[in-house]
Design a protein around this nucleic acid. Structure first.
Lengths: 195, 195
DNA sequence: TGCTCACTGGCACTGGGTGCCACTAGCCTC
DNA sequence: GAGGCTAGTGGCACCCAGTGCCAGTGAGCA
């Protein structure tokens, strides 16, 4: 239909923009999926074909995110220090350009504060944990479902989300720096507690 | 109405038994809340007055659980080694008698495997994290919402859930032992990775 | 022109969760 | 004992998330 008009932003991008905007201003629970769909110019039915759950509209293309993390971990190989590798991978995957930071902040603020999104996030985190645990298993020779791989995956992920929370709480802080602070504490057994 | 019959199990206990049974045999999503309510002899409406969400029927009296954890942490005082205190508190709160272990297994298996319950669990974990972070803050003099208290809370909780998963995976293992294994790794910066 | 195929939207249905109201049972007061 | 207050319960109706089914529709292709 339109021809020489604006580049006609892709439908998914429109949905995600609308979702972030509406959820931020009025709260996740207060905005029905239909309203997001309307704002993006698609039907409710199509919305749920794009995203299996309303919450997924906030996460963008998360599968690609996980795949990128997996790629970085595999590329690092099993012989480098495990925690440092995981930290670097987390940092690189979340190394956004200055221009994208406001959207990232908006997204993470929603995920970390809206209860429904907080709950849903556990399902996304499980995908990350699978990938990280697999890396640890490759490095240590363990079974990926053993205690150590699971533990390292779960606690590094805890470090990452904590770093995100700290980053959000301080407008002027740098995400990469918070990630490194958290990972350093974790890797050294929380030296700051031994004051 | 009934008089000298069976002690007439309390309604909540009936609900929780029915929920565990039905969810275990047919899956959380496949059993409507109404069916659980019927099995417990109450109405759907009353079910949702007892439990704000269907998932809460699986958790029993979780607020008491958290309160107990909080009490143990406060009782330990801020000067004992933080991680050891948290580990001991987790172990004690989850120190069930032999007779209660099957129910605990059933409950935890549901929570750790059913996606909807897995998601919901994040909200319960957040309550635990608040309490643990507060303890760390008392010990370290930090702000409870600072990086270190949050980090310790999140990663010890990760250790605890990982220990639960390992315990579930091995019928013969002991929960307390798994908890200590996980906390020991965490506290020492994952020495097993330095093979 | 006709066919296929992928995408879309509408419709109807299940089920979670909630507000509202009516009913009942205790319990307190006079 | 009568009237009233309160807490707990159940029924009803509603909103909304998510899904199966079917009917377009339009692009590509023979």
């Amino acid at each position: 239909m339109t021809s020489t008009d604006a580049p006609a932003e892709a439908p998914r991008a429109r949905v995600e923009r609308a979702a972030l905007e509406l959820f931020t201003s009025r709260g996740f629970d207060a905005v029905p999926a239909e309203e997001v769909a309307d704002a993006a110019g698609i039907s409710r039915r199509t919305f749920f074909r794009y995203y299996p759950a309303k919450a997924d509209a906030v996460w963008g293309d998360f599968a690609a995110h996980v795949a990128r993390l997996d790629g970085l971990l595999r590329a690092a190989g099993p012989d480098r220090p495990v925690l440092a590798t995981i930290c670097a991978a987390y940092a690189e995957v979340n190394d956004y350009g200055e221009a994208d930071l406001p959207v990232l902040r908006q997204r993470m603020r929603l995920i970390l504060t809206e209860p429904a999104l907080q709950a849903h996030s556990q399902l996304r985190y499980a995908e990350i944990d699978r990938v990280v645990a697999a890396h640890v298993a490759r490095s240590s020779g363990d079974d990926p479902s053993g205690l150590l791989p699971r533990l390292v995956a779960a606690s590094t992920r805890a470090a990452a989300t904590t770093a995100f929370a700290a980053w959000l709480a301080d407008d002027r802080s740098d995400l990469g720096r918070q990630l490194h602070r958290a990972f350093d504490e974790l890797a050294a057994g929380f030296p700051s507690l031994r004051s």
